[in-house]
Amino acid sequence: MSHTEPHSGELDNALSGVELRIAADPTQLSVVRAVAADIAMRQDFDLDSIEDLKLAVDEACSTLISLASKGAVLSARFVVADGDVQVSTQVVSERAAPPDRDSFGWRVLSALVDSVTTWVAPKSGEESYEVHIDLVKRSLGTVDA
């Protein structure tokens, strides 16, 4: 094995999710929604849960697009863990503040998923920031009784 070949555990981690990197443009939202729906279907989510995840991902990405710097790339990473779908989204922004958690959109987003968090991190050596929104949608089989 050469030094450039990943060990089997490293390969499993590298392939455990799907990451999209697209222009931070509203015309690209249909791609992200389609991936979210496909992943939810493969996890046997019911139709309502599939639609909730699609709408939540759309809202998170729309929020980030509204904050994005000109020419920014939107990243959306989907990981399945124990039947739950975890979505991590981020974009580069000139704004240091996180999304408005008192907005109607944030309330809708919070109602559609089991957890949602946001934070902002400065980009090293630049006068810009990475704005993150992470969410988790649990399958019905993993909801605590």
Rank of each mutant, 00 (worst) to 15 (best):
D58Q: 14
A68E: 00
A60S: 14
D44F: 11
A36F: 01
L74W: 04
E59G: 01
V73C: 04
R42C: 02
D58L: 08
R33Q: 15
E59Q: 09
K54H: 02
S49Y: 08
S49F: 04
S62E: 11
A37K: 12
I65M: 13
L64A: 12
L74Q: 05
Q43C: 15
S69Y: 00
S75T: 14
A76D: 04
L64S: 09
F78D: 07
S75W: 07
R77G: 10
I65C: 09
R77L: 10
E59C: 01
A72L: 10
D38R: 14
Q43D: 11
I65F: 09
A72G: 08
D38T: 15
Q43G: 07
A36E: 01
L67T: 05
R33I: 13
L74N: 02
G71D: 04
E59M: 05
D48L: 10
K54G: 14
G71C: 03
D52W: 01
A37N: 03
E51L: 11
V73A: 09
A56P: 12
L74G: 04
C61H: 06
S49N: 08
F45D: 03
I50H: 06
M41L: 14
I65R: 07
V57Y: 05
E59F: 00
I50K: 11
D44T: 10
R42T: 02
K54R: 15
A76L: 03
I39P: 03
I39R: 11
A60I: 00
K54A: 15
V73E: 14
S49C: 00
S69T: 09
Q43T: 06
A40K: 12
A60W: 02
A34L: 08
A36Y: 00
V73M: 11
A40G: 11
A60M: 07
C61I: 04
L67I: 04
A60G: 02
D58R: 13
R33Y: 02
A76P: 05
V73N: 06
D52Y: 09
V57D: 07
C61W: 03
L55I: 09
A36G: 00
A76I: 03
